[in-house]
Every structure is written in structure tokens, then in C-alpha cells.
């Protein structure tokens, strides 16, 4: 018996699929190899659907602008910010972050010489592909300084813990 649903299905058969084939149309035979190939640039993947302005992705941190006011630590609901007393900056754990953007709202920022208005130290990027094997990988911890430097700085203090 033909029903309305049946006509709908036939109509959809004639249309293009709605799915965005991100990252690849079909599951590859070897996922790790595919990822390596993409990293090396030998293979291209389909792009995800573009995100709008104001999208709340991974947090960006500019330690130059950070005045160490600790307001972001006060408001962060997930306690994703850690205070580093030695350098008076913060460290951000992306795996704990709930992407509410309160820290960006509350950040006062710093006016560098020659600027008219202060620029915030924290901002939300559009980056949302954050899957990783390790929750403490470099990609998922936003450090005030570059990784090598901070490692050198951190070693004595982590031993003390």
C-alpha cells in the first residue's frame, strides 16, 4: 500500500545524500595508515562543514597579554585552568574544558605600548578536531611558554610534588 512515507523515501532517493562525507566517504582499510598519509599530505580528506563566526573551539592563549589576574580561574566551571605561580601565568587543560567561553568574557587583557585598547589574552579559535590518544598530549594542554622551555622549567617542581 503506498503511503506518504513511501513517496518521501522515493523522493529522497532522487536527491543527493544529506551526509557530509567527512573525513572520508567510506571507512578506510587501515585507519592509522590513512591518518599518517593525511599528515604527510599524500592524501586529502573531505572538509568538515564550516563553523560560523563566534564558534567556541579550542582556547587560544597569548601569554604576552596575560596580566595574571586569575579571573579565568575564578569563573571556569570545569576547573580547567591551572595557576603557575612561578611565571604568574595559567595552564589550560583542553580535555577538561567545557567550551563555555566565560574565561574569554572575563579576561581583561593587556594594552601593549602603542595600542589604544587592551587586547584579551584568551580567545576562542575555530579548531574543534581535538581527538587524541593521550589526554595530556601537547595538543591538549595550552601552555604559557613553548613546550621545551616549560618542560625545563617544570622538572624540578614536578619532582617536588
Amino acid at each position: 500500500m503506498p503511503t506518504k512515507a513511501m513517496f518521501l523515501m522515493i523522493r529522497q532517493l532522487l536527491q543527493r545524500p544529506f551526509t557530509n562525507p567527512f573525513p572520508v566517504k567510506y571507512a578506510p582499510k587501515n585507519v592509522t595508515k590513512t591518518i599518517e598519509k593525511v599528515k604527510l599530505g599524500q592524501m586529502s580528506i573531505n572538509n568538515p562543514i564550516p563553523v560560523p563566526d563566534g564558534f567556541r573551539g579550542k582556547l587560544k592563549y597569548d601569554p604576552e597579554r596575560c596580566i595574571g589576574c586569575r579571573l579565568c580561574i575564578t569563573v571556569c566551571p570545569a576547573n580547567a585552568m591551572e595557576w603557575i605561580p612561578e611565571v604568574r601565568k595559567i595552564r589550560h587543560y583542553v580535555t577538561r574544558c567545557m567550551f563555555c567561553g566565560l574565561c574569554v568574557d572575563v579576561c581583561p587583557g593587556k594594552k601593549l605600548p602603542g595600542e589604544t585598547a587592551p587586547v584579551k589574552a584568551l580567545s576562542m579559535s575555530k579548531e574543534f578536531l581535538l581527538a587524541d590518544y593521550d589526554k595530556y598530549s601537547d595538543n591538549l594542554i595550552v601552555e604559557p611558554t613553548s613546550k621545551e622551555q616549560s618542560l625545563n622549567n617544570q622538572e624540578p617542581s614536578s619532582d617536588q610534588k
Binding site: 518521501l8 529522497q12 544529506f18 563553523v51 560560523p52 563566534g54 564558534f55 567556541r56 567545557m98 567550551f99 563555555c100 567561553g101 566565560l102 576562542m124
Partner: peptide, 25 residues
């Protein structure tokens, strides 16, 4: 599948206004 396809539209609008598809903050 059909209803959830229709639902994408409102999620897109919510994403544009609030910055995320769910958990709008």
C-alpha cells in the same frame, strides 16, 4: 533519519547565534 535531517536546520541556527550546536552557554 528524515526528522533528524530536518533538525539540522535549527541546530545550525543555534550554532550561528550561540556558538555551539548544544550547550549554548
Amino acid at each position: 533519519f528524515w526528522t533528524w535531517k530536518l533538525r539540522e536546520k535549527v541546530l545550525d541556527v543555534l550554532e550561528a547565534i550561540t556558538g555551539n550546536r548544544i550547550n549554548y552557554a
